[in-house]
Simulated scan of single mutants.
Amino acid sequence: MASKTPARTARRPTASPSPSARSPDPLFNQSLEKGLAVLRAFDGAHRTMTLAELAERTAMSKGSAQRTVHTLQVLGYVGKHPQTRRFQLLPRTIELGYNYMAANALIQTANPYLAQLANASGETASVTEPVGTEMVYVAQLVTSKFIPVQTPVGMRIPMYCTSSGRAWLSSLPDEQVLALLQASDRTPRTPATLTDVKAIMARIVECRRVGYATNAEELFLGDMGIGAPILNRKGEALGAVHVSPPTSRWTLEEAQRKLAPMVIECARAISSAVAH
């Protein structure tokens, strides 16, 4: 998605329920949970951290964080910067995401259709999948045109204010949609962000009618989105495909008229290919 130098706020990784809040599960491994929490604690705003900072961001005691980080160091997932001595992720962590993408049939199927969509539209084309109340980028064909803000594979965006999120939500029953919207942190990202559940629901209902969802500068200023759901043979949404036309090149009306049919066609082609 394109935008004009948006302000980004640091977001703490979603905390897992505490052992006391979780139903007793004799098979649940809390040590593994802590290891994953440490790996997820690093992001663009926290590239390196001290042990105390890691403990705070993962809600662990310093002793527990130390044991967890040491284990990850031994396994090659976390290391210390040679000058600052602060902890950082190591390249081996990339294996985890790569293995998911390599084994994901949707991603492999979608790539040639995304290439066609990006070429026909002249804009960046992406596929996202749902994770909780967010969508995560799993595939992308980037336009050759200038994009001020990168939205790389692995980045997560909220469902409530994005075209891909609304497109995916449009395939769900109203009760599930409302539950997800109410569970979302509907923070205004820009002056145009819709945060009222009824107003967002109206956009989702409209998506069901026309086959695509829109986002006009609700996530980033200067950015728009046109998205459509990717369905399996049962009519269940696996994810969504969308293009990211910037306001510097498009009006919303032009994008709806020219790009929406391309996005719908791409989503249908991927859906048909996945079903077979």
Rank of each mutant, 00 (worst) to 15 (best):
residue 104 N to W: 11
residue 176 Q to D: 11
residue 130 P to N: 02
residue 105 A to V: 13
residue 231 L to F: 08
residue 196 D to W: 10
residue 79 G to Y: 02
residue 121 S to A: 10
residue 114 L to F: 00
residue 207 C to K: 07
residue 217 E to A: 03
residue 104 N to A: 13
residue 256 Q to C: 04
residue 236 E to H: 04
residue 203 R to G: 15
residue 254 E to I: 07
residue 224 M to S: 09
residue 44 G to H: 02
residue 74 V to R: 05
residue 29 N to R: 12
residue 33 E to K: 06
residue 260 A to Q: 03
residue 108 Q to G: 06
residue 218 E to T: 06
residue 226 I to R: 14
residue 207 C to F: 02
residue 249 R to T: 12
residue 266 C to M: 05
residue 24 P to R: 06
residue 42 F to P: 15
residue 118 A to G: 01
residue 153 V to W: 07
residue 3 S to E: 13
residue 13 P to H: 11
residue 128 T to E: 06
residue 191 P to Q: 01
residue 274 V to T: 08
residue 274 V to E: 12
residue 15 A to I: 14
residue 85 R to S: 15
residue 144 S to N: 10
residue 151 T to N: 03
residue 213 A to L: 01
residue 171 S to A: 15
residue 58 T to C: 11
residue 264 I to K: 10
residue 105 A to R: 12
residue 218 E to F: 01
residue 226 I to V: 09
residue 89 L to N: 06
residue 115 A to P: 10
residue 53 E to N: 08
residue 48 T to V: 13
residue 195 T to N: 00
residue 192 A to Q: 13
residue 151 T to Q: 12
residue 40 R to H: 09
residue 259 L to T: 11
residue 63 G to Q: 05
residue 49 M to V: 08
residue 157 I to N: 14
residue 217 E to N: 13
residue 64 S to T: 09
residue 137 Y to M: 06
residue 211 G to T: 14
